[in-house]
Design a protein around this nucleic acid. Structure first.
Length: 961
RNA sequence: GCUCAGAUGGUGGAACUGGUAGACACGCAGGACUUAAAAUCCUGUUCCCGUAAACGGAGUGCGGGUUCGAUUCCCGCUCUGAGUACCA
């Protein structure tokens, strides 16, 4: 900053500083060089082993990048650069997830086409990314909203439509194979993941169906299919949301209320893959919490389904009874799912969800009023209340009974809202002795509680134990858990009233959005049957429309597109959800410009999968689950080679904002004055806190002049200072414009340079840990880089390196850092390697080392962290420009670290007292003698004889007195 | 409620399989250079007692335990953050 000034005033200092570390020139020069020479272009054929480093690509929002975004990108870039130096052919691409709601919301407000704002936002992102010096191969950039790209998203959709899941083969197969089976064998022998209400038919019956009927039936098997589903409808956003986009009954984006609504919807049969998605988790190197989240989301429970015959229902084996007048043939059974089928003799009532389809059939005339009142009451309760209020017991008796299939006892049927219609069969067998909710329910309504295990303690609460022997349990009395469960299942199977069953919590994923800015679904409707467009007609382009709003008749915005019609029918009007384009993008990077396939077979067989994936854990149950699903499907149809797409995954922690406050003095009338009180003094005054821009605060000290300039109303501000300074208050909040706590990487790159920014972001702490951003301390990293630069220069900043043989101490410093950084990088501990670099440079500075033999290797190992300064020094050292990125990583030689003596810490009773330097050649016995002989130690022993002496060679000595 | 992660100086953090707690940096204090400031360099900096210093005591959220030795392992608890939520 002072340099230009000095240039004119003091020529002596000017010469001194002119060649000082000029990060601006250096960084601009090398960024240009890399771009011009395509330094980081990856080849799809190579003798080197491959390594694929991927970042979760960003949605290009209007706000641009803040300082938290690049954290993961910097880490992955360091890793990618490191792998190049280690001799790998590295694929390290970047792109944009450019379909999405904000651009559309903006379009609704301004009328501007989302593609225009998207384009502008991408340009900003690119500029911001470029100035940090990433080694991305930009020739492979993808944008999910580009027709060349979404052509293949649509193509994958078509493959899903043309596939069904064969449970016997445990993989997806072509729908034509299913049709062939129907033609020759009918529906017999098909074990498919499909809708519940499939028909069973013979081959002849199939052939006799009209095409319309056949298509309707096939739709029940396709991996993407239409079905009337209850969806999360958000009226304010005008769209349907996925479960993971809804939080506590409100939309995650915008926080608008979300209601349940029935709608014809495209769905993805992800449940077909539930088991494979679960087992696959054991084969991948992901953070355990993230795997756990996916496991919970998939929600596998192993148990049994049991049919309870409805007492008096036709076909249930009992003829009498007083059932409500059902119009249809009454159902003979209620089916429940249970994970504790061994407790079946403890069943004292049955509970079904208020929304259960049999409720009206089961309600007796006497109970009609009670049941209807209860249903009305439940409906009134919002989703939120129902979740919050888990303590109050409520329910109503239907008046009907089932019989226990194993002992024929009459069991009351109740409805209660603690049973959810959407899980299992929407009905549970209640065992109050073993389940706390059933227990409370039984107590509340005075229903029997039957102990079923000898050691059960059920005086005050349910006891879900599996220990002990069964009692009151018919043929399993005296048995233990395992054998009892097996016996009950066997008996139920024999009776045809139950079987072992696995249940998943995960639901099929809804795949339609009533929105404009997304991929059009490549489908048209003919006689209400969805049909795919021709593959040769892909991509089905997103048409222009006049307004980005639903039509008057409530159809999605695409309903406004005129002349947008398939020759044979009407196009689907909903578009694909945000996760469509991101569920396969890592394959497009492998072969980004292919117009014949989404990526060539060769490219996919070469790159295979992502070796390292870095991104936030907020995508745990969305993107990361859908991507695994699509990947498995693509593997089933032979298009990709790996079962799991992301071998290793790392979550970078969230960067929170760190807000600063000033405290405005309040006058007697309670009005804010123009005087501000320093934080340490606010207890003596009446003040109110005001957010202040963190960029005019340094180490909590407010820059008073900048504060006066910051907002016009603070122009004449006065201050009550402490120790001559105004100290600000601090609080951790979300990083957001409205808290004035956003730190922009552009500002830091301007002020300190990209290399400093990169290293500082890593220096901040462990990558995976969430932490508030704090710019305090960036000076330390900046100083380090200047010190590093000085190693190569004399006092007048002339480049000076010596070809002299390095000393033992210099070699030791070098090899210590080689070893340390390599270990750190392999375990993604980037913060500690930055510290180690500082130590190494401090040591070499103390040794006044300017030897090429040391410094050149140091340049190579620092390159992944601070690539610009290293490139510059690499060339100054006489190497060819641009060859640094592919130089070979220095080999660690442990011989240089060998010591011949060790400074033994001597503890007495575990407390470190003194140290003794002894040769490492000494054996345990000799160390003991040397320690006891030492005058220093004798002083501490104070004449006492040690009880015990512990010597760990090369580590420690501990004397027990 | 359940699951997971975490708690170390004024601050960010380090200590990798139990072995010198506080590396590295920020901040702060003192000093050098300077008319002065900035920049740079040097010294100190866990706390307490004492204090010129040696030295002594305490100390990794809290309470126990195992061990010659525990930030690290075990048991119980408190707090913070994330995920999930009547899942039968």
């Amino acid at each position: 900053m002072c340099k230009q000034f000095l240039l004119f005033s003091q020529s002596y200092q000017c010469v001194n500083t002119i060649m000082d570390y000029q990060f601006k020139d250096i960084e601009k020069k090398w960024q240009q060089f890399w771009a011009d020479n395509h330094t980081f272009k990856a080849e799809n054929t190579s003798d080197k082993p491959k390594y694929y480093v991927l970042d979760m690509f960003p949605y290009p929002s209007g706000a641009g990048l803040h300082v938290g975004h690049p954290l993961g990108y910097i880490a992955s870039d360091i890793f990618a650069r490191y792998k190049r130096l280690k001799g790998f052919n590295v694929l390290h691409p970047m792109g944009y997830d450019s379909f999405g709601l904000p651009a559309e919301q903006y379009a609704i407000q301004t009328g501007q086409h989302p593609s225009v704002t998207t384009e502008a936002n991408i340009a900003t992102y690119r500029r911001q990314l470029d100035q940090i010096g990433f080694s991305f191969d930009w020739s492979r950039e993808v944008r999910t909203s580009s027709p060349d790209y979404y052509k293949w998203t649509q193509w994958i959709f078509m493959q899903l439509f043309n596939s069904w899941y064969n449970k016997d083969a445990d993989k997806a197969e072509g729908i034509d194979k299913l049709v062939a089976h129907f033609e020759s064998n009918g529906s017999a022998g098909i074990n498919a993941a499909c809708d519940d209400e499939i028909l069973s038919f013979t081959a002849d019956e199939w052939k006799a169906m009209t095409n319309q009927q056949q298509q309707e039936e096939l739709l029940k098997y396709r991996l993407t299919y239409l079905r009337e589903s209850t969806v999360n409808w958000c009226a304010a956003l005008g769209t349907v949301l996925a479960n993971d986009e809804v939080k506590d009954g409100f939309s995650e984006r915008g926080g608008y209320p979300v209601e349940q609504k029935k709608m014809m919807q495209w769905s993805m049969r992800i449940t077909a893959y539930a088991q494979r998605l679960l087992t696959g988790l054991d084969t991948i190197d992901w953070p355990e919490p993230l795997k756990e989240m996916q496991r919970n989301w998939i929600g596998k429970s192993v148990g049994a389904s049991v049919k309870f015959p409805i007492y008096g229902a036709a076909g249930a084996g009992v003829s009498e009874g007083t059932l409500a007048t059902g119009t249809e043939t009454p159902a003979p059974y209620i089916e429940v799912f249970t994970t504790r089928v061994d407790t079946i003799f403890g069943v004292s009532f049955l509970v079904i969800a208020p929304e259960h389809e049999l409720v009206s059939q089961l309600t007796t005339p006497e109970q009609k009023d009670a049941i209807e009142a209860y249903i009305t009451q439940t409906k009134k309760k919002s989703e939120l209340d129902r979740m919050a209020d888990t303590k109050t017991v409520s329910g109503a008796f239907t008046g009907s009974y089932v019989t226990n299939p194993l002992n024929g006892e009459m069991v009351q049927i109740w409805i209660a809202d603690y049973v959810l219609a959407g899980y299992g069969t929407g009905a549970v067998m209640a065992v109050p002795s073993g389940d706390q909710r059933d227990y409370l329910f039984a107590k509340h309504f005075n229903l029997p509680i039957i102990p079923i295990i000898d050691i059960q303690k059920i005086d005050t609460e349910a006891d879900p134990t599996k220990e002990g022997k069964y009692i009151n349990s018919n043929f399993i009395n005296g048995l233990e858990y395992k054998e009892a469960t097996a016996a009950v299942v066997a008996k139920l199977e024999e009776l045809g009233l139950g079987k072992a069953k696995v249940n998943f919590r995960m639901r099929d994923a809804i795949f339609g959005r009533q929105r404009y800015w997304g991929e059009p679904v490549p489908v048209y409707f003919k006689a209400n049957i969805p049909r795919l467009i021709e593959e040769s007609d892909l991509p089905l382009l997103l048409p222009d429309i006049d307004k980005y709003l639903p039509t008057e008749t409530g159809e999605p915005p695409l309903g406004r597109a005129s002349d947008w019609k398939h020759p044979k029918g009407e196009y689907e009007l909903s578009t694909m959800p945000g996760w469509a384009g991101s569920s396969w993008y890592w394959y497009r990077y492998m072969d980004a410009h292919n117009d014949q396939e989404f990526a060539s077979k060769d490219a996919i067989e070469y790159w295979k999968d992502v070796d390292l994936y870095i991104g936030g854990s907020e995508h745990a149950t969305g993107h990361l689950l859908y991507s695994r699903f699509w990947n498995k499907f693509l593997k089933d149809i032979g298009k990709v080679v790996e079962e799991e797409p992301f071998k290793k995954l790392i979550n970078q922690g969230m960067i929170q904002g760190r807000s600063n406050f000033v405290y405005r003095l309040i006058d007697a009338e309670g009005k804010g004055t123009n005087t501000f009180v320093s934080h340490g003094l606010i207890k003596d005054y009446e003040t109110s806190p005001i957010h202040v821009d963190v960029n005019i605060v340094e180490n909590e000290v407010l820059n008073l002049n900048k504060f006066k300039e910051w907002r016009p109303d603070f122009k004449d501000a006065e201050f009550i200072l402490e120790n001559g300074k105004y100290i600000c208050g601090v609080e951790i909040e979300k990083m957001s414009k409205r808290y004035y706590n956003v730190v922009n990487p552009d500002d830091l790159a301007q002020r300190y340079g990209a290399d400093t920014l990169r290293m500082y972001e890593m220096f901040l702490g462990p990558l995976e840990q969430s932490k508030p951003w704090n710019t305090n301390g960036i000076e330390g990293v900046f100083k380090f880089l200047r010190k590093f630069w000085k190693l190569f220069h004399d006092a007048d900043f002339n480049f000076t390196v010596s070809d002299a043989e390095p000393s033992k101490a210099e070699l030791k410093a070098l090899h210590k850092i080689i070893q340390k950084v390599e270990q750190d990088i392999e375990r993604f501990s980037f913060n500690t390697s930055v510290s180690s670099f500082m130590i190494a440079v401090n040591e070499l500075t103390d040794l006044k080392c300017n030897k090429r033999a040391i410094l050149q290797d140091l340049v190579i190992i620092l390159e992944p962290y601070a690539p610009h300064i290293c490139e510059e020094l690499w060339v100054l050292l006489g190497n060819e420009a641009g060859t640094l990125s592919y130089a070979s990583y220095p080999k660690f030689n442990p011989a240089y670290l060998v010591e011949d003596s060790f400074n033994y810490p001597v503890s007495i009773n575990g407390k470190m007292k003194t140290t003794i330097s002894l040769p490492l050649t000494l054996e345990q016995k000799e160390v003991e003698e040397a320690v006891l002989a030492s005058a220093d130690v004798q002083k501490y022993l104070d004449g006492k004889t040690p009880k015990k002496l512990i010597v760990v060679k090369g580590r420690i000595v501990n004397i027990v007195v």
